[in-house]
Structure formats: C-alpha cells, structure tokens
C-alpha cells in the first residue's frame, strides 16, 4: 500500500501550492475552515486530524460572492464587456466524506438537469479533490445514516490516517495522474487501516421520503418550526445548501453582476415584485428547508441533500436538531 509520512504533508502542500491554489483544513483565529495554503501566514495550524472544520469547503467551488460579468451602461446602452471565468487550478486537500458528498450534490445541481452552470463547471473542472477518511465520527455526525461511507469519500484520492503515516489511495484517473506527480513523496508499506468507531446516532433513513410525501400540511411543522427564528445560519454553514441570489453593483457607467449565497430561511428569498409571497410565515420557510433537504431533493436527484455533517446541529442558536426532526417524522402518525 502507498503511504505518505505525516512529516511530508507540509512539504507536499508547499509543493502543490506552487502550481495550484491548495485549500487545507486549518484553524485561523477562532475559526476553522478550508483556507488557501498560500494565504496563511506564519505557523499554519493544519486540522487534518480534527474531526472536521467549522466552515465547509463549499466556498471553494461556490464562493459566497462571485462576480459573473461586467456591465457598461449609458444612454440606451447596455453591454457586457467581460465574463469572468475562474480557471485557476485548485486542490481541496483533506475533505471529509460528508463534505465531499456535498460536492457531489453540487455537481448534480449545477451540471445536470438541462443546464450546465458555466461558472461552477469551470471551477469544478480544474479542481482535484483529496478526501480524508473518517474513522472516529463526532458527536453530531450521522453521515452513515444518510447513505455515506465515512471512510470512502467521493474524491480523486483518499488518505487514511494510520498513525504516523497516511495511507494513500488513488480513486479516479485524475487521482492516479495526481499520484504520479507526487510519487517521490510516497512510499510502499504494509499496514492495516483503523477500525471505524461506532456512530453516536444511527437511524434508518429508508422510508422517510415516502413518509414525508403527503406530510406537507401536517401539524407537526408548527411544533418543529416554533423555536426557529429563520436566522439562516444553518443554511450558510451547511455544505450542501446551494441557493443563490443574483445582484448588481454599478458606479456611474460601469459595474458588474454577481451572485451571492442566499437562504430559503429569508423572507426576501421568495418575495415577489408585486408584493406577494408564497411563503409568508416563518414556519413555511422552515418547512421548505427541511423538505428540500429530506424529500424534494431526493425526488429530483435520487438521494437526500443532507449529508449528515452535523454542522447545523452545532450552530443553531435555538437548538434545532435535524436528527431529532428526522426521528420525529419517522414516529408521528402520517394522518393529521
């Protein structure tokens, strides 16, 4: 089996970041996230051995704010001089299975079903993903219940923490080519992989989608939604939430159109120009979030939009817990 010594991770990252922007799980101040290796000054606190980082790498492929094209305006004039395509080569190093699955969700959303989103496509095409297998699920992890194998992330290469070394496993053709480039840092070694520790929460997701179909008007939504203040934190921190808004910035005759993250938890999200809103109440918006994650996405793409990373559970200021919600849905009577 090929392995890389843990001491060689920093040289590896240094080398890779000469050609690509390399995003690595690191701690920065009171935050942790996938930060660009070159942008980190001084001592770099790599968090490959932590369960995961606070901010998922969704920003890498789907920046929170992204300029799409420039605009020029004048009397009766409207032109688009430039379209911004970000063709930089990128590496996401050390992504966990839950966050990698979220990228698979993004691939389905942005690249299939009739249209290919060119901005996402360009970035995605030039990105290599190195997964980091999880053997020790955390307190809020439930990826396995959502159909994800924590030790086999959707990635080009997967590394497995085996003490002083990482086992190195090339998965895709891209992963094999990538492995060749760094061959000199790898070595052959016989070793056993660790055992996956048990999850603190496991449940059977089978049947939840079918159960939810027809529960749209169920009274349980009122009870579940009542503590929610529609703050949107859960959607911003969620690796798989992909909603965006399109807006513009213009000074005088020049400007640009950009997109930025948005959330179905916000009133403004569905507010119509004429003043109407199909989801006027807090509860309507709450229900949309959970139904999108747990039912609608499966109806469209065949698997749920929640990857079980548990972040929303850790960040919700009002203790709303998606595992509890799934369990409640499983146990209530479908008929109101």
């Amino acid at each position: 089996m090929q392995v890389i010594d843990k001491n060689k991770i920093v040289p590896l990252l240094d080398r890779l970041s000469k050609q690509s922007e390399v995003f690595v799980p690191t701690v920065k101040g009171s935050e942790s996230g996938f930060y660009s290796w070159n942008s980190l000054n001084g001592a770099k606190e790599i968090a490959l051995e932590a369960l995961n980082v606070y901010h998922s790498p969704k920003n890498v492929l789907f920046p929170q704010t992204e300029r799409m094209y420039s605009i020029e305006q004048g009397k009766q004039v409207f032109s688009i001089p430039d379209t911004f395509q970000d063709e930089k080569s990128r590496i996401i190093f050390g992504i966990r299975a839950c966050d990698a699955k979220a990228i698979t969700c993004f691939d389905d959303v942005f690249l299939t079903h009739g249209y290919e989103d060119s901005f996402y496509a360009t970035r995605r095409k030039n990105t290599i993903i190195i997964g980091n297998a999880c053997y020790q699920p955390g307190a809020n992890c439930f990826c396995s219940s959502m159909g994800i194998n924590p030790v086999q992330p959707d990635a080009d290469v997967v590394i497995h923490d085996a003490g002083t070394v990482y086992a190195w496993e090339a998965i895709t053709v891209t992963g094999q080519q990538f492995t060749e480039q760094v061959q000199d840092l790898l070595e052959e070694k016989d070793l056993g992989l660790p055992q996956l520790k048990p999850f603190s929460t496991e449940f059977d997701y089978d049947g939840v989608v079918e159960k939810l179909q027809g529960m749209f008007d169920h009274e349980i939504w009122h009870e579940l939604a009542e503590p929610c203040m529609n703050c949107g934190t859960c959607t911003y921190m969620c690796p798989s939430c992909h909603c965006f808004d399109i807006q513009v910035k213009i000074w005088g005759d020049k400007g640009y159109r950009f997109r930025c993250w948005d959330s179905c938890m916000y009133t403004e999200y569905t507010a119509e120009a004429g003043g109407g809103n199909p989801r006027p109440d807090s509860q309507d918006r709450f229900r949309n979030r959970f139904l999108h994650k747990l039912e609608f996405f499966t109806e469209r793409y065949d698997y749920p939009l929640c990857t079980g990373c548990g972040r929303c559970i850790s960040v919700c200021p009002n203790g709303i817990n998606i595992i509890d919600i799934i369990k409640r849905i499983k146990e209530v009577d479908k008929i109101v």
């Binding site: 959303v109 989103d117 909603c243 965006f244 808004d245 948005d262 949309n288 139904l291 999108h292 469209r300």
Partner: peptide, 9 residues
C-alpha cells in the same frame, strides 16, 4: 440552480 422558484420538488 438558485433554488428559489420551487414548488415541492
């Protein structure tokens, strides 16, 4: 892609 015009799925 942007999500906002959904009615159900």
């Amino acid at each position: 892609k942007c999500g906002r015009c959904n009615v159900g799925s």
